[in-house]
């Protein structure tokens, strides 16, 4: 049977072809060059894993466009950030601090529970969380399912030492920086092959 026939019958799916995703199902990342590589933006209801070594590479500036969309009735939940987010820097970036809900837990079990609750609730467009190396794959799968139930985006920051491990998250990004600026590599994405590192034009520090 010829390849053309198979495609006509719909038995073959081509990775590069637009999977028919509606524009409403996408959340723009706010950076046109990144959106283009993601195929229009983040697909809602998915887990995003952001890998990097150490804070200060632009991970917050990468999220600024998403954080700006938070409202008191649709807040962003920050679950156990490694440091204190600075309210003044948010105000300067036109982000409402009162729409950022900070959650502190006491153990890994509680942290995973809180992330799952926030993702599942469907009232948070974005849930930010920080997990170390030890998180098990079943735990991550639970979070991916919770994100699908709630329809929001779940962003998990992890050290880049877990880069070689597999993950049930829909997206995996590696954020790196040099004196020229920040670079994002797409290790895993929906509807496409991994993409190598490319520069993202983040707002300047000063």
């Amino acid at each position: 049977m010829a390849l053309v026939q198979l495609m006509e019958q719909g038995q073959l799916w081509r990775g590069t072809q637009d999977a028919g995703i509606q524009a409403e199902a996408l959340e723009s990342s706010g950076y046109p060059e990144l959106d283009a590589r993601l195929g229009g933006g983040w697909l809602k209801g998915q887990l995003i894993e952001l890998l990097q070594s150490g804070e200060g590479r632009g991970e917050l500036r990468l999220l600024w466009p998403l954080l700006r969309r938070a409202e008191p009735e649709r807040p962003v939940f920050w679950i156990d950030p490694p440091h204190q987010p600075c309210a003044l820097s948010f105000l300067q970036a036109d982000i409402r601090p009162e729409s950022q809900q900070l959650v502190r837990t006491h153990s890994m079990k509680e942290r995973l529970w809180a992330i799952e609750q926030a993702l599942k609730s469907g009232c948070a467009p974005l849930v930010l969380s920080w997990l170390g190396e030890q998180v098990t794959t079943p735990a991550l799968r639970r979070l991916q399912l919770a994100a699908q139930t709630g329809g929001g985006l779940g962003l998990i920051m992890r050290p880049d030492s877990v880069r070689s491990q597999s993950s049930p998250a829909a997206y995996r990004l590696h954020l790196d920086s040099s004196d020229k600026g920040a670079e994002v590599a797409l290790l895993k994405r929906r509807g496409g092959w991994p993409l190598p590192a490319a520069a993202v034009d983040l707002p300047a520090v000063i």
């Binding site: 008191p72 009735e73 649709r74 807040p75 987010p85 309210a87 003044l88 948010f90 105000l91 601090p97 009162e98 729409s99 950022q100 809900q101 900070l102 959650v103 502190r104 837990t105 006491h106 509680e110 529970w113 809180a114 609750q117 926030a118 609730s121 469907g122 009232c123 948070a124």
Partner: peptide
């Protein structure tokens, strides 16, 4: 199905009253 207030109440019930707070300046 859940409002933010409900979610925050649920988190506070398990994690303690001070565990969920909006950022202020």
């Amino acid at each position: 199905q859940t409002t933010p207030a409900e979610l925050i109440s649920r988190l506070r019930s398990r994690l303690g009253a001070e565990s969920v707070q909006p950022l202020g300046w």
